[in-house]
Design a protein around this nucleic acid. Structure first.
Length: 468
RNA sequence: GGCCCCAUCGUCUAGUGGCCCAGGACAUCAGGUUUUCAUCCUGAAAACAGGAGUUCGAUUCUCCUUGGGGCUGCCA
């Protein structure tokens, strides 16, 4: 137990511009784990100040994605939504204006673009020209929609800070642009809103992706201008694609929701993701529960370098969880939504295929033969060059057809085992398996019998015999 | 271009000056178990980007080079 729980407060602040993707959810996970491993709070904030990219319903889906993986925000019934706090940001923007730490800029977008082109042509770093920086335009002088508010970045200052993951970092303020704080549509930019909200929400640790590292000095200066103490800061590395570029939708990296639909287990995905840039002290690889991850989590062991997303390993985790980790009962329950509702999915059927299942969406095809015997060629019933399929099937049929209905599969399996010579298993079991499944690749005949009724088992064996 | 970050097997990583001619996992390959496929078991191949320095000794510390990434938006 920590001395002052609540002292640690973190936030995950996605933009509702679509589905939550792997990179985002990894940030969320690390932020969550940092908070929870220290007895702190994990808050969700919706950074929706870009109304052009806003996508209806994405807030709900982001929350659904997080919940599915067990990342539950502590403020679910009290989310901070930036678009609802416009006045607040204006209040502080006004303060900055009054203090002389910000100014009104009326440069048109065309003008700005032209400036930039010239700078690039002259091999100068593209930055705001500073045209309005000293012009003292007042709020009363401008019309709504025709100006922005920029911060007045001090010149010639070395801005230093300590990043919890990367160590000491410094920037030359002269190289940093006069960031727009309030856009012409009246909404704040991320930079202004995040500083104000992080302070008002009493965030103790800003933990976010590496792409924000370069704008950190802007935020730090803003904190100072507003007279606030800045939180601790840490920048996580990014999730990369095979070409070592920032992972994006284009790489075929599915959103969390898509992985869910594909039949990945949340435990498997979570386990895979947490090992992307983090490693426990020992060599544990499989963390079955969130609590076990929290228990092992040490923020200091987070990797600085970017991590490549490896689908093969995710697949392995999923297969491993399906085959070995989940209980048969639990697995069967979760699998139901992946097969037609009229199929009665039993634990016996699930048991017969779980070791060869990559993801739950593959289940339907894999077990369809239990519900409808596929067409197959008579030749398939012969084991290699042997010709004994018919007589062996007949022997099996005779042996088990009189068995009682109750406990049929168990006794049938015993009976069959009793008559199959140990050196002739192929000759007996191959035809039986094909007759029962109609396939050359399937679970074993015993597993199939366990999943079928007595009636259906006998019917399929007779069908096989008829073909020969 | 400028600024910033990063750098161990193909991939995720262990490693904080000697225990490392570098360990684990995934993937790959070769065997074994198995009626088929899968599971499972055994084994193999596979890396400290390069160069200077510091040191008795560098994967580990410093510098440079190279390579990769991010930012450079009235997007986040």
């Amino acid at each position: 137990m920590l001395l002052c729980p609540g002292m640690i407060k973190t936030r995950f602040a996605p933009s509702p511009t679509g589905e939550l993707h792997i990179g985002g959810v990894r940030s969320a996970l690390f932020v969550y784990l940092f908070a929870k491993s220290k007895g702190g709070d994990f808050l969700l904030r919706i950074d929706d100040t870009d109304r052009e990219r806003y996508v209806e319903g994405s807030v709900e889906r982001i929350i659904e994605s997080l919940n599915w993986l067990g990342i539950v925000p502590d403020n679910l019934d009290n989310l901070v939504v930036q678009s609802e706090r416009k006045e607040l940001y204006h209040k502080y923007a006004k303060q900055l204006l009054d203090q002389g730490d910000a100014y009104i800029c009326t440069c048109s977008k065309e003008q700005l673009e032209k400036d930039k082109e010239e700078q690039v042509a002259n091999k100068l770093p593209p930055m705001y020209s500073g045209r309005c920086r000293e012009s003292n335009i007042r709020l009363e002088d401008v019309k709504e929609g025709e100006y922005v508010i920029r911060m007045k970045m001090p010149k010639g200052e070395i801005i230093k800070f300590h990043d919890l993951i990367r160590g000491d970092i410094e920037f030359d303020s002269s190289l940093i642009d006069d960031q727009v704080l309030i856009k012409s549509d009246g909404f704040p930019t991320y930079h202004l809103a995040t500083v104000i909200d992080d302070h008002l929400m009493e965030i103790s640790h800003i933990i976010r992706a590496e792409e924000w590292l370069s704008s950190t000095p802007k935020h730090l200066v803003l904190f100072r201008m507003l007279g606030w103490e800045a939180p601790e800061i840490a920048h996580l590395s990014q999730v990369l694609n095979k070409d070592k570029k920032k992972l994006s939708k284009r790489d075929g990296a599915a959103s969390v929701i898509e992985y869910k639909k594909l039949g990945f287990l949340p435990e498997a995905l979570r386990n895979f993701i947490v090992l992307l840039g983090w490693h426990p002290k020992d060599e544990t690889e499989v963390f079955e529960t969130m609590d076990s991850i929290i228990g092992a989590f040490e923020f200091e062991r987070i990797q600085k370098a970017g991590a490549v997303f490896d689908m093969d390993k995710l697949n392995w985790f999923n297969r491993h969880y399906i085959a070995n980790v989940l209980s048969l009962e639990e697995l069967t329950e979760r699998a139901r939504e992946f097969v037609p509702s009229e199929w009665s999915l039993t634990q016996e059927i699930m048991a017969s295929v779980r070791s060869r299942l990559d993801k739950l969406s593959d289940l339907k095809e894999m077990i369809s033969f239990f519900f409808e015997l596929p067409e197959y060629a008579a030749d398939d019933l012969y084991w290699k060059e042997t010709k004994t399929a018919k007589e062996n099937l007949e022997a099996v049929l005779e042996k088990i057809s009189a068995l009682p209905e109750s406990g049929f599969s168990k006794t049938a399996i015993e009976e069959i085992n009793g008559i199959v010579p140990s050196d002739k298993k192929g000759e007996w079991l191959w035809p039986l398996r094909v007759a029962l499944s109609g396939k050359r690749v399937s679970p074993s005949p015993f597993e199939i019998i366990a999943g079928l009724s007595k009636e259906e088992t006998l019917r399929r064996i007779r069908l096989g015999i008829e073909k020969l």
